[in-house]
Nucleic acid binder design. Structure first.
Lengths: 205, 205
DNA sequence: TGTACATCAGTGAACGCGCGTTCACTGATGTAC
DNA sequence: TGTACATCAGTGAACGCGCGTTCACTGATGTAC
């Protein structure tokens, strides 16, 4: 359908998607403006009608990524339903699922070397994603006796770090760190043990 | 001292060090052959007497990095002395210390997108580093009742993932994940809680 | 110790390439009358 | 509905640059006699 003639219709988005594909396959520096334009069936000069330069295209990808990420985490958390613990674990799974399903976004967000201060939108999207994680940690830690409760930010940071580490080391072709366990398995057991250390007793698995 | 005239003396190493410095400052793609040569006070063609190309220089950096890394981890572990638990925690600190003190190596090893199969040396150095982590996990888990003991590889993977995640997210200028806690603090508490989850009771801190 | 020679780590100039970006342009689209 | 015109998203050619790499060379170093 649509006006695929002289005017593209939605080139901005098409360029973002082309670049995401390239980035997912070839790493953060593995895309070029020219190649992204080519994949969108457009001349090499066209992207500059929509982005001031390469940097801005990367920021746009990261921004879209953080938005999507925040959406998925929020959806997984569902305001802590049915229980803070299950919701918390759902967030962990969502983290991993996002990295798996949206590798291009993930790379743009975490491996492209951009700063979240690159744009107001990016900073906002990034903060929103972070807040879901912090909230999940906060709600869950309310169920702990106050004297065993670590600071919420710290709790969230631990879980984020483990999730991120598993993604980087075991969910990609990273240096020789192939493990006999799937990323999902590693995350589930890792978070499980960690939560037990905080005093959450879980049913046996 | 030394023969700084026509012949450099140890250009290979000088190039590696120049590239490490550049990479530490500008990220994995942030060095060029020409720039590394320049920093070593040598013409742009000189590096090709020591490396077949750019890729080989990266591999050399990563290789040196994994060797150094393995040395530091082994030194920290000291065959499990004075106790498996303290030795284990020392390994965690060594992980972080390495990333902090040798950012160039760290980037080459984990963020440059090379495969450990790129060379036999690299694969060996990488495996050696990994083995220290696995051994530390193994020795420590011997102190657990067999029915609460996770597979050694899994144990090691959890700890590696958390360490790596903390480095990537909180020990660098990564996207907006600044935390009120230092990486060392995060790692110490994170591993502490995890170990408690496994059944190691620690003295209060 | 002195000379002849092989070796080999450097030089400097040049290459081809691809990339990011610019610029004058063109033709499709939407709008005012 | 038809025409005139402003707008604006595209084109295509060209630019300058820097990078990785090559090549014929040169001069320092080590070794054999």
């Amino acid at each position: 359908m649509s006006k695929r003639g002289y005017h593209h219709g939605n080139l901005r988005q098409a360029l973002i998607e082309a670049a995401l594909k390239l980035i997912a396959e070839n790493g953060p520096r593995g895309f070029t403006m020219a190649e992204a334009a080519k994949q969108a069936n457009v001349s090499a000069a066209a992207p500059y009608r929509h982005f001031t330069g390469r940097e801005e295209l990367i920021v746009a990808m990261a921004c879209e990524g953080f938005d999507l990420f925040a959406d998925l985490l929020e959806y997984a958390y569902r305001d802590g339903q049915p229980s803070p613990l299950t919701a918390f674990e759902a967030v962990g799974h969502a983290y991993l699922a996002f990295a798996r399903k949206h590798p291009g976004h993930y790379v743009a967000m975490f491996e492209s070397g951009i700063s979240p201060d690159a744009s107001r939108d990016l900073a906002a999207a990034c903060a929103r994603a972070n807040q879901v994680l912090v909230r999940a940690a906060h709600d869950l830690s309310q169920h702990l006796p106050a004297d065993r409760r670590p600071p919420t930010e710290m709790f969230a940071a631990h879980v984020t770090a483990m999730s991120h580490g598993i993604v980087e080391l075991y969910a990609r072709g990273a240096p020789g760190k192939r493990s006999p366990f799937s990323p999902e398995e590693l995350l589930e057991t890792g978070i499980g043990i960690y939560l037990r250390g905080l005093g959450f007793l879980e049913p046996d698995r």
